[in-house]
Design a binder for these strands. Structure first.
Lengths: 161, 161
DNA sequence: TATTGTTATACTCTATAACTATA
DNA sequence: TATAGTTATAGAGTATAACAATA
């Protein structure tokens, strides 16, 4: 039987190495997304907004600002860009004349459909030839890490509102 | 015995769901890094440059531009900001009078040391209570995904130079 | 001639503050 | 009085193009 030592110190190099590998994946995925979106004429912030309109239907800029956690002024700029490039339109709100509803154009909808196909292809490429058991083990680790991270962020940013 | 169906279609929802979980982790880690860096008065681009100087020692802006894959003009801006906030200095190149060497200040070095400690703490938080087998399985999946992603990016960006 | 880093200019994303129109 | 979205202004990060000093 071997004597015990605090795992904290003993295995630290393996843990920081694991973190480095996760961070490398973050960089790779970021590059991939940016490259893929650029092919559609979109940036990450604009795609994020577009995706919200896709998921939740026509909605006001105020709602989008809250969901994106940016200022209303920022949403004005993003929507301006998406209108100029033909992805969305501003429509009158049926009851509130202060508000505008951001809606998808046909081009916006078809772009999102194409992006959804790309997402499926990417998932197939990344996970397609992992065995069911391997995938399950990977997702277990992933969920563990994500949970811990959420706790850490929550602790750092006390009681948001 | 059940009849077989193409895994591609049968398990697609599980795969895209896995991708979504990875993407969520990317977002969480990005938020965590940005928050942590802000506490030191740094942004992601500036921290990246700082880390290169930490790892490779004093180096020219040209070398930094290549490593960061941004334009030399951009490096001028980043270094300006890091000089103003006291993380680095511009020194004369010993033999090439066109070039400047970017070097860490004491403040820059001590900040990097603190960030390194934070990185260890984060690794401990994220992976510390995974069993050795769980960690191994997670890293296996991670490496698999990263490899596939590198292949995909390489295919998308043909023969860089 | 080629290279290093800069000035000049511009675009995107982000923020705050003040303002208009409406609720 | 409060809310939705805008104009006005500013700063960081990114890019190209033209230029100065040096190799």
């Amino acid at each position: 039987m071997q004597f015990t030592m605090s795992k904290t110190h003993e295995l630290q190099p393996a843990l920081t190495n694991a973190l480095d590998q996760v961070l490398e994946l973050v960089v790779l995925l970021g590059d991939d997304m940016q490259h893929s979106l650029a092919g559609h004429g979109l940036s990450l912030p604009r795609a994020h907004l577009l995706w919200l309109v896709h998921r939740n239907g026509p909605q006001t800029q105020r709602v989008l600002a809250d969901a994106l956690k940016v200022t209303p002024r920022n949403v004005t700029s993003l929507v301006d860009g998406l209108v100029d490039t033909g992805f969305v339109t501003r429509e009158r709100h049926p009851t509130d004349r202060r508000a505008t509803l951001v809606s998808l154009t046909d081009h916006g909808a078809s772009t999102l459909a194409a992006m959804d196909e790309s997402r499926k292809d990417l998932a197939e490429l990344l996970f397609g030839d992992l065995s069911s058991a391997q995938l399950k083990a990977f997702l277990h680790g992933l969920n563990h890490v994500a949970s811990r991270l959420r706790e850490g962020l929550q602790a750092a940013q006390p009681t948001e509102r």
